[in-house]
Design a protein around this nucleic acid. Structure first.
Length: 524
RNA sequence: GGGCCCGUAGCUCAGCUUGGACAGAGCGGCGGCCUUCUAAGCCGAAGGUCGUGGGUUCAAAUCCCACCGGGCCCGCCA
């Protein structure tokens, strides 16, 4: 933050909130010593009503802020625009495993972060109902039947492991089924049945979308319309000869339409992304009630809806970076002013194995089992959710997560439970307060906590700018830690300023926890 | 061959995009603290060639170059 044109960060010196190293930078330009300049800055700051004390230490400027500052300062957190965030988009032939959960929690948290900046946010879920995975599952179901299970996503997921083993031998038949799916829509009911049960997991974890789009609804009219337009405007290239003879590709020579006239996955993806930006319209929706609540489902019979996003964010595995880059390039050509962002996340895996739907390595590590185990260990659904969500979101998305039960469900140290505990503790202090909270004077100890009130803006903007909820998790740990330490040293219940600090701590902890989708509890 | 991600304490990670104070947490291990607002907590000590080597700079974990280790991607599959 800036005071009188000098940039400040959080101070490392005890009892000071802000620090600046600008004297070093100016020293270079002005050819004077940092000491001299830092003294000068201190001189000008002393007049400022927000500054209670400013000191120069070895060329650095450290500042104590005045109570007036805390009562007046409001960070600027409003930005404009429409953002479409796509996340989860799990193949509808298996239950969610922990990797899918990472995607879901990241997307849901980003949704909330963008909403905090007052963007218009549309959360989208893409249902690949015409994929090969679904075809394999559907084919297996038709030929071998599927073992009963209380959840259809589980029944199909378990069968898919078997189906995958038979795939090579029966590929021809499966391809036949795939063709029928595309032409006659034979699998839509099957897919919706799986999706319905997958969404029970979404509900349990608090994942809420505004729209669900089925590939089969894009595949026909919208697809052709978009491709024709792209051809017309010269964004696609036709190859008369060579290896790519008869295909339409991007300018980067990635095939969009095969020589047999069918679409590649990349082609379909480009069409969907462009729809989000308003390049074409015509996708229809109807509102339906599903396990997560009311959601707009794509459907040929519904009403036309469009998003016209300025910014499109897709939470997709990092292994898809290359095709994602290609899509970004195409979009950049068409909409230089818009943003296309691939939020790339690494795998969640066990020590030696990564989760795979095909190999069945997810069994025992489904999102449902994780929550179940959490409730068993922590004895509370809310706390189990807090622990799990925090555990997953505290890692930067590009970092691989090695899954271990004890870590995922940890209740001590840098865990979601630690943060919750600080929040509940602050609430308890306020409840038992003997005086009213009132900001009077801030002493060294108060300032150690108050620093983090300023830092909120910094961490929140960082989370937005880098599309990384882990910045929020980090913030929560810092603030909770500062408060717990403060609590250990300072008697609060008859301390007016201390209670004011406690109130603020609660406020910021709550905001942060909400952005991560953690449930808020008042007692534990 | 081209590209992407990761490499920081015994283990798991922050910090790197915008270069600045002695590199921070948690877990594990060691020593303390529950008649006092909730001990799912707090305090203290221990633990580091920031993968390696160069370069830029008053200043490098951070920027640039080269290299090493681990993982991944480069189809008219989806």
């Amino acid at each position: 933050m800036d005071i009188d044109g000098t940039k400040f960060g959080i101070s490392k010196i005890k009892g000071y909130e802000l620090a600046s190293s600008e004297a070093f930078k100016r020293a270079k330009i002005e050819k004077r010593s940092p000491m001299e300049i830092s003294q000068e800055i201190v001189g000008t700051l002393k007049e400022h009503p927000w500054v209670e004390e400013a000191v120069a230490i070895n060329g650095y400027v450290n500042v104590k802020l005045s109570p007036k500052f805390y009562l007046e300062y409001k960070p600027e957190l409003k930005e404009n625009g429409t953002v479409a965030i796509e996340y989860v988009s799990v193949n509808p032939n298996k239950p969610w495993h922990i990797g899918h959960l990472r995607n879901a929690l990241t997307g849901e948290s980003l949704k909330r972060i963008y909403q905090a900046f007052q963007y218009d946010v549309v959360a989208l879920d893409y249902i690949d109902d015409l994929g090969l995975q679904v075809a394999q599952s559907y084919w297996y179901w038709k030929n071998y039947g599927i073992k009963e299970h209380e959840r259809f996503d589980w029944a199909v997921g378990l069968a898919y492991v078997e189906a995958a083993k038979l795939f090579e031998e029966h590929e021809k038949e499966v391809r036949e089924i795939l063709k029928e799916m595309e032409e006659k829509g034979i699998s839509r009911n099957f897919v919706e049945k799986v999706l319905w049960d997958q969404l029970k997991t979404a509900k349990a974890y608090g994942i809420f979308h505004h729209m669900r789009v089925f590939e089969s609804d894009i595949a026909r009219d919208l697809f052709n319309k978009t491709i024709e337009l792209l051809k017309e405007k010269g964004f696609l290239v036709y190859h008369e000869e060579g290896e790519l003879k008869g295909t339409w590709t991007t300018r980067g020579n990635r095939v969009v339409i095969r020589s047999d006239g069918t679409a590649t996955y990349l082609g379909k993806d480009i069409v969907f992304q462009l729809w989000k930006m308003g390049f074409v319209s015509g996708l229809r929706f109807e509102e339906r009630e599903d396990p997560t609540g009311k959601v707009w489902y794509s459907n040929i019979k519904g009403i036309e809806k469009e998003i016209n996003a300025d910014k499109v964010i897709n939470v997709i595995g990092i292994e898809q970076s290359l095709p994602q880059q290609e899509i970004a390039k195409v979009i950049k050509e068409i909409y230089p002013e818009k943003e296309y962002i691939h939020v790339a996340y690494q795998k969640v895996r066990l020590k030696d194995v990564s989760f795979s739907g095909r190999k069945g390595t997810w069994i025992g590590y489904s999102a449902d089992e994780l929550l179940e185990e959490g409730i068993k260990r922590i004895k509370s659904k809310e706390l189990a959710l807090s622990a799990i969500k925090f555990f997953i979101l505290k890692y930067t998305p590009t970092k691989e997560v090695i899954f271990e039960w004890d870590k995922a469900l940890s209740t001590e140290g840098d865990s979601g439970i630690y943060v919750m505990y600080a929040y509940v503790r602050a609430g308890s202090v306020l409840k038992k307060a003997e005086v009213n909270p009132l900001l009077k004077e801030l002493n060294e100890g108060d300032r150690e906590v108050a620093k983090w009130f300023l830092a909120w803006e910094f961490y929140l903007k960082k989370a937005l700018r880098y599309n990384d909820p882990s910045a929020i998790a980090e913030y929560l740990l810092e603030l909770a830690g500062a408060f717990n330490s403060y609590y250990g040293k300072v008697k609060l219940k008859n301390n007016e300023t201390g209670l004011w600090v406690t109130e603020q701590v609660r406020k910021y902890l709550k905001q942060g926890m909400e952005l991560l989708g953690m449930p808020i509890v008042e007692e534990m």
